[in-house]
Amino acid sequence: MISNAKIARINELAAKAKAGVITEEEKAEQQKLRQEYLK
């Protein structure tokens, strides 16, 4: 099960992506976390 901290990070990265200020490194982290969440 995914931790609350990881869910919070997913939401934080989603907000950054929506604002258009996300880095390529953060995009990769976001994809990794989303895949983990979906498992």
Results as ranks from 00 to 15, higher is better:
K16H: 04
K27F: 10
N4E: 14
V21R: 07
E29H: 01
N11D: 08
I2T: 10
A17M: 06
I10T: 04
A28K: 13
I22S: 03
M1H: 13
A19Q: 10
L38M: 11
A14Y: 05
A5F: 00
K6P: 06
I2V: 09
L33M: 04
K6Y: 04
A17V: 06
V21G: 06
Y37L: 15
A28P: 00
E25T: 07
Q31V: 12
A15I: 09
K39P: 14
I22G: 01
A5V: 11
R9F: 02
K27N: 06
I7P: 04
N4K: 14
G20L: 03
I2Y: 02
R9Y: 02
S3W: 00
E26R: 00
Q30V: 09
L38H: 11
Q31R: 13
I10Q: 04
S3Q: 09
S3N: 09
A28M: 14
L33A: 04
G20S: 03
L38P: 13
N11V: 14
K39D: 15
A28Y: 09
E24V: 10
R34L: 15
G20P: 00
M1A: 12
Q31Y: 05
N11I: 15
I22K: 01
S3E: 11
Q35N: 11
A14Q: 12
E36T: 02
V21Q: 13
L33S: 03
A5K: 09
K6W: 03
G20D: 05
S3L: 05
E26N: 00
K32N: 08
K18Q: 08
E36W: 04
Y37I: 15
R34Q: 15
Q35S: 09
E24C: 10
S3H: 08
E12G: 03
Q35P: 04
N11A: 13
E26H: 00
Q31E: 15
K16A: 05
A19E: 11
N4A: 14
K18T: 08
I10S: 05
E36H: 05
A19L: 12
A17F: 04
Q30R: 09
E25K: 07
E36D: 13
Q30Y: 15
I22M: 08
K27I: 13
R34S: 13
E25A: 10
R34K: 14
Q35D: 15
E29I: 03
M1N: 14
R34P: 02
A5L: 05
I7Y: 03
K32Y: 09
A19N: 12
K27T: 07
K32T: 07
T23E: 02
A14H: 08
Q31L: 07
K32R: 14
A15L: 11
Q35G: 11
M1D: 12
L38E: 15
Q31D: 14
N11C: 13
A17I: 05
K18V: 11
R9E: 02
R9P: 00
N4Y: 02
A14G: 05
A17N: 04
N4I: 14
I2Q: 09
A19Y: 06
E29Q: 03
Q30A: 15
A5C: 08
K6I: 15
K6T: 14
K27P: 01
Y37A: 13
A15M: 10
Q30S: 10
M1E: 13
L38K: 07
K16L: 10
Q35C: 15
A28F: 09
K16Q: 03
L33C: 02
